[in-house]
Design a protein around this nucleic acid. Sequence first.
DNA 1: TGCTCTCGATTACGTCTGTAGTCTTAGCGA
DNA 2: TCGCTAAGACTACAGACGTAATCGAGAGCA
Lengths: 135, 135
Amino acid sequence: MTQSKNGKSAANSKPERISDAEHAVMEALWEGGTLSAADVCDAVCEPRGWSLATVKTLLSRLVSKNAIAAQPDGRRFLYSPLIARSDYVGGESRRLVDRLFGGSASSLFAHLAEQEALSEEDLADIEALLKELKP
Amino acid sequence: MTQSKNGKSAANSKPERISDAEHAVMEALWEGGTLSAADVCDAVCEPRGWSLATVKTLLSRLVSKNAIAAQPDGRRFLYSPLIARSDYVGGESRRLVDRLFGGSASSLFAHLAEQEALSEEDLADIEALLKELKP
DNA sequence: TGCTCTCGATTACGTCTGTAGTCTTAGCGA
DNA sequence: TCGCTAAGACTACAGACGTAATCGAGAGCA
């Protein structure tokens, strides 16, 4: 067995939580597909003020969380996402809706509307989507 | 000065992040208005499997984060929320929308729709809200 | 008055996170 | 061939979090 740290085998795909910093790395990978540590750093180090070492740490953690895969490429690794962005996004959205709105998405919508967090454009888009969903 | 831990005076109202466990306590206070530690425990200890001590710790942390107020009541304290639930909820929602949907609420909506996370009822509610917003 | 019970305050401690620095090793250029 | 470089691995360390146990003081009962 390759790793059994914290009792989770590599085969166990129960998605562990991805932290904020890790999420930034994931975004780079979702964007770039398959990247080396240096590539990821090119994408995120500048804006977040991180060093390459930080990115490497985050990549390692994501690997042990089974969120990304590391395939050897010469003397380095190429990393690629194992979980789809839409899955992650869906999970996080659901978490929020469950936690704060008792699972009711329309409550979230109502809240955003109330806070005037919805632009004219948002409203138009949503209206269009609604039409699509309820022909 | 009563407290200056971590350099934030009580007057500093910049909202610090509220953790998951703390949020459970906040919910109890939003629900109950003004409660003693024991009251809060009555509300949350059972379902989360916490001890009273845990609740007290969380209450202390919330006090130092200026999220709740503690007013003396005899030899104990009564705690009440300092931040409105809608503010908290709004902040968290915005955080999510910003982080995952580039700030576009309609993208979130689109995502929920795509995942079929919206019930018929949700759709109807949202439609009604839309009508209200765009007369 | 002395004991007990109950509060909040203080202290504890392992894990996760953010953010790196150091160590080891495999190539590559001189 | 030999040292330099760059890649990942391992180590570090402070702060936040989850979860509590313990301590010291006041309130009420015997």
